[in-house]
Design a protein around this nucleic acid. Structure first.
Length: 726
RNA sequence: GCCACCGUAGCUCAGUUGGCAGAGCAGCGGUUUUGUAAACCGCAGGUCGUCGGUUCAAAUCCGACCGGUGGCUCCA
């Protein structure tokens, strides 16, 4: 006999080979009816699985268990696939897993699915669900299964099978095997029958590359979701709709914070006066922190000679995501092309076709430059790459192109290098709200969260290897501080290390040291973090702070990066206590990341209702009638001089309308003033949420605001509560 | 960059099978003088994203481009 231990600790006995469903039936008919799968010894399995072993731990899973729902979503993906195949028999199925909040199925189909098709798909799915056919698992020896798949000729399934582990492959038939019912290669597990997949909906369709590889064929990814019942599905859809109301693009428009103008260019943010206030206040806040922590603000240009980025390695490696360089002359452009061609060849033997063509073109159009190329001995031979690049760079120095800066670090490095440094000065922390430009792919642009021009609250720290850990820890601390101050609590920390791809610069030793430092710092910070390889910057590993937007997409905000490589590329030095030259280590860090992205996320987090210290307009004075206009004007003047960011509504509208307008603009305090307030020199305070504080002498209101602003709302959150008893 | 969808007044959106371009809000002018989330009347406002094509006739059908949205890929 086999002992089956249940979650409540009780044990039931059954002969080995009893199915999960039979065990559940013996315990409770209701449990057997509601279960969609089970967890046995920690593994989620079908209800039809036969149990074995002297002892098993068994937990039934229903649609209300997250793991049960995940099984149902996976099964729902099968049902959707069957529906699509029934409607478009040419469909080739690729891959259909459950994901957070639903599932998808990648398919190859010459007909592009549109939202109009969703109804037909759902109708077919309903029919399949109604038929309530069983999901039957069929295990086959690998060889036979592969043979079967080859006969069927679906390359994606063959590929999936080749990637699967084990000697047997499993198929799931929804219905009876051999009767033409839908069948799919799948590891399972699944719900017992197609009637058990809950309340579902086909959500959207999108392109997706096979294996996520942009060079491979693009498939159609059909997204769907399912919930335990219609009510839960509706609740989810309502919640999604509610979340979209917080979208920073929508609120940015409604609250007049910022806009993007096609005439200016995609991904280029224009901050309107109200959005500019939020940014300016946040900048002031961070600037104050920087000064407290010994940072030295600088100003540097937003453009620089291309050669600066040849040295740093940004160019041409990230050429595709930079605005094209600006060349003052044709010869500069041609020489740069030649440099790129030479760089592309590397140390290989023989001029490439591009090199030959360019040398020829330059020789013909600019004989004197061509002659110089000869004199300085541009070489076709192997191992001459570096020499050739230097030859071209020397000639380019006379008339180089300019690049809109994609990063601030090269400029800050030049600031550091502009004078000699002693170890006594270190660490040197150079800070700047640095505007950068990156030519992001058009499909990536998104409101303020992914843009082509943005401002980083950037700084570069130059320190000795001994100081590195403390400096990194200090940066991590500051990144945590900014999130705390604005109340962004829901974030995760990612440690990005390198993988073995060739996109990274610098030596293995440098990388090892840098990664060690990053890991040590993050460990000592006591934060939860996830290490992800392949997520490092090209010059070094990093610690990123990541948050989600209103529709669940993740965005990197703050970042701290350790860099041994750029100091080497720029040959940075300091004089040590041994009177010899040493190489400093760099830390790149930006606690906000970019002001654009940070504020975009912040708008969503706050649903546009900024706390008093950040609110673009902190109060609006609303007069009740023409009789109180003059007093309202006086209140407004006093508030503005306080200073408070205040507006005056002296229109002829009714007070209800004025309050509605102010509340919809999410102005924290609405000061209602009528004849009564004018008589006793008070303001009647109410909040955008509708809370009424009653009458209050104006100086008292202003004093309360000053406290709330100075403490950034932490002293008495949202309460200007100094309302005197009246 | 790729796939799909969308683009009508400052904003949010209607616009049937191709047949004179509409509403609400905002704006402007009046009337109203108001007590805590929308007073009333009137006026004005649009090359229907752009360019090309089909047609007697295009906001509507077709194509290209521009811009936006969702996803994929990318993200120093």
């Amino acid at each position: 006999m086999m002992q089956v231990r249940l979650p409540d600790g009780s044990v039931v006995e059954h002969p080995a080979g009893t199915t999960v469903a039979e065990v559940l039936q013996s315990i409770s008919a209701r449990l057997a009816r509601e279960a969609v799968a089970a967890k046995v010894n920690g593994e989620v399995i079908d209800l039809g699985t036969r149990l074995s072993g002297p002892q098993v731990e068994l937990t039934a899973l229903t649609l209300n268990d997250p793991e049960g729902l995940e099984v149902a979503r996976h099964s729902c993906a099968h049902v959707m696939a069957e529906a699509v195949c029934a409607l478009w028999p040419r469909t080739k199925l690729a891959y259909g897993p459950p994901v957070e909040n639903g599932f998808y199925y990648d398919i190859e189909l010459d007909h592009s699915l549109t939202p109009d098709d969703f109804l037909a798909i759902e109708a077919k799915m309903q029919q399949i669900a109604k038929e309530n056919r069983p999901f039957r698992r069929c295990d086959m020896p690998r060889a036979a299964a592969m043979e079967k798949l080859r006969t069927e000729g679906n390359p994606y399934k063959i590929d999936n099978a080749q990637r699967a582990d084990g000697d047997t492959l499993s198929f799931y038939v929804t219905g009876e095997p051999g009767t033409g019912h839908f069948e799919d290669l799948c590891r399972g597990p699944h719900v017992p029958s197609t009637g058990r997949i809950g309340a579902f909906k086909v959500m959207q369709v999108a392109g997706a590359y096979w294996h996520g590889d942009a060079s491979k064929q693009q498939l159609q990814r059909v997204y769907g979701t399912t919930f335990p019942d219609k009510k839960a599905l509706k609740a989810y859809l309502d919640q999604m709709e509610e979340a979209r109301k917080r979208d920073h693009r929508k609120l940015g428009q409604e609250l007049g914070l910022f806009f993007l103008d096609p005439l200016v260019g995609p991904g280029l943010v224009l901050w309107k006066p109200r959005g500019a206030v939020v940014r300016r206040v946040l900048e002031s806040f961070i600037l104050e922190e920087l000064l407290k922590r010994g940072y030295q603000p600088v100003y540097t240009p937003q453009i620089a000679k291309l050669d600066l980025y040849r040295t740093s390695g940004h160019f041409p490696y990230y050429k595709d995501s930079q605005y094209p360089p600006i060349f003052e002359s044709d010869i500069a452009r041609k020489l740069n092309d030649l440099w790129e061609a030479t760089t592309a060849r590397g140390e290989a033997d023989g001029f490439s076709r591009d090199e030959k063509r360019l040398i020829d073109e330059i020789g013909r159009a600019y004989p004197n430059v061509g002659q110089k190329l000869c004199e300085k001995k541009l070489q076709p031979g192997p191992g001459m790459g570096h020499h050739n690049q230097q030859v071209v760079r020397e000639l380019l120095a006379e008339s180089d192109g300019y690049l809109l800066r994609p990063m601030n670090c090269p400029h800050h490095i030049r600031v550091y290098a502009s004078e000699a440094h002693s170890y006594r000065e270190l660490p040197i922390r150079i800070a700047e709200f640095g505007q950068v430009y990156r030519y992001e792919q058009s499909g990536e642009l998104s409101g303020m969260t992914r843009v082509r021009g943005f401002c980083q609250d950037d700084a570069h720290l130059f320190c000795t290897p001994d100081q590195l850990l403390d400096e990194v820890a200090g940066c991590v601390d500051m990144a945590k501080l900014v999130l705390h101050v604005v109340g962004l609590k829901d974030y995760r920390v990612r440690v990005g290390l390198r993988d073995d791809s060739d996109k990274y610069i610098g030596s293995a030793e440098n990388w090892a040291r840098a990664q060690e430092a990053v890991l040590a710092a993050v460990k000592s910070s006591g934060m939860n973090y996830a290490v992800e390889t392949g997520e490092a910057a090209f010059y070094g590993p990093k610690i990123d702070f990541i948050v989600k937007d209103c529709i669940g997409r993740e965005w990197q905000l703050g970042t701290v990066q350790v860099d041994y490589n750029l100091p080497e590329r720029f040959d940075l030095k300091y004089i040590g206590d041994d009177n010899r030259e040493h190489r400093p280590v760099m830390v790149h860090r930006a606690p906000f990341g970019s002001l654009e992205r940070f504020i975009g996320i912040l708008i969503e987090h706050l649903a546009g209702a900024f706390p008093l210290w950040l609110a673009p307009i902190q109060a609006r004075v609303c007069s009740i009638s023409a009789k109180s206009k003059e007093y309202a004007q006086w209140v407004y003047d006093v508030c503005r001089a306080a200073p408070l960011r205040v507006e005056l509504d002296n229109s002829d509208e009714r007070i209800g309308s004025k309050i509605r307008d102010a509340a919809m603009m999410k102005i924290p305090y609405i000061l209602v003033v009528g004849e009564q307030e004018a008589a006793d020199k008070t303001v009647n305070v109410r909040t955008r949420e509708g809370k009424q504080y009653g009458n209050c002498a104006l100086p008292q209101f202003l004093a309360a605001c000053a406290v709330e602003i100075a403490t950034r709302g932490e002293a008495a959150p949202g309460e200007a509560d100094q309302t005197p008893p009246t």
